[in-house]
Nucleic acid binder design. Structure first.
Lengths: 198, 198
DNA sequence: GGCTAAGTTGACGATGCCTTCAGCTTATAC
DNA sequence: GTATAAGCTGAAGGCATCGTCAACTTAGCC
């Protein structure tokens, strides 16, 4: 079990470095995405690259800690947006998905986190899972209302984020919005719907 | 005819190497995508990596020659599929887009060529342009029939290939089909359509 | 002030790719 | 059979990144 092995408290300078690194990493990731070189982050924090390894152990660990928080903030904001949206579950679902997608467009770090799989970042994964769970609930509501197609699965919604993320990465913001709009059209329940392929 | 700039004829062995390299490159690209290392290609052709540079000048030039042909074949096949499809322009359009997308799923080289921009591959670009022109015509027909939404632009269709390509690269074939199906639903003209965002 | 364990540093080796080029091999013409 | 230009080779140099570690620095305790 990962019983915290009672690590001795950090020295004051080390604690300061952790803080500086966290900040620098968050900035670098948000500017350049999760591929930002450690060198850049270290320089930004005013420490050497070795210190990253001393304090965090690995690139993935740093990433997990920093982006986890960043992603959590965005996801919460999107939930709040959904909750604050007038209308039924359908409207809230669109608001939620739209808000997450806008977040992906606004922040490369969030985008990479949400769409690319970073398998060695458990905390990050947890945030994404929570987000999908929330969307699942809204989708169930929207389906019950008769606004969302009956045969749309949760995986379909999850893939919206993948698609949106790829278009963000391609730098095509106009296209991103168009594709999203078309997908939303496709989600709508209609009298003449027949089952989707797949 | 593209007037050849009168370069002196190749020696027989060099001509053979060009052929072996073309073949090896086509195979490697189709197996591993356009990122296939030159080392791999050279080994496969039974020559040294230097020979690639002697014969083609650069990675991009090799790529342009080889993938251009490969892509052209796929595009022609898709056009033939569309032409052979019963129904109106709408049905042909779906058949065409579906055929290209299936090609992207079947061949990583075609996929990379069609979705990632390889800006230094002019012949390749020409193939893609021809493909889009064909789709544009079909779309115009489908719009005239009243089957395709009035406000769908050619760029929207082009982005289908981008989206499809990204999902192929993610290895999610089921998802690819679902997203495509949803997008097709979104394309359909309906009495209650109101303008798309963007 | 001095000691020492905690912490930092940055050059280094490893990886994986591209591209070059000096030196060697060989097809071809005579 | 030989000369020679065409062609081939692969080691070497680049570049960008990761992760390590021996040697140095310093916080914090006495």
């Amino acid at each position: 079990m990962p019983e915290a092995p009672q690590s001795p408290p950090l020295r004051a300078d080390a604690r300061r470095n952790v803080e500086k690194l966290r900040q620098a990493a968050a900035d670098a990731f948000s500017e350049h995405g999760l591929d930002a070189p450690l060198e850049t982050i270290a320089k930004r924090a005013g420490v050497s690259i070795g210190t990253i390894y001393n304090r965090f152990g690995s690139r993935d660990a740093l990433l997990d800690q920093v982006v986890n928080e960043l992603a959590d903030r965005r996801v919460r904001a999107a939930m709040a947006t959904a909750d604050g949206t007038a209308g039924g579950a359908w409207e809230k679902l669109l608001a939620y998905v739209g808000s997450i997608c806008q977040g992906q467009a606004d922040d490369p770090a969030f985008n990479d986190a949400f769409s690319r799989l970073y398998p060695n970042a458990p905390a990050l994964k947890a945030v994404c899972d929570r987000s999908l769970a929330f969307a699942t609930e809204l989708a169930a509501g929207a389906r019950a209302e008769g606004a969302l197609r009956q045969d749309v699965l949760m995986d379909d919604i999850a893939r919206f984020f993948q698609v949106n993320g790829d278009l963000v990465r391609a730098g095509d913001d106009a296209g991103r919005r168009r594709v999203l709009a078309l997908l939303f059209e496709g989600l709508r329940a209609r009298p003449d719907n027949h089952p989707l392929a797949g």
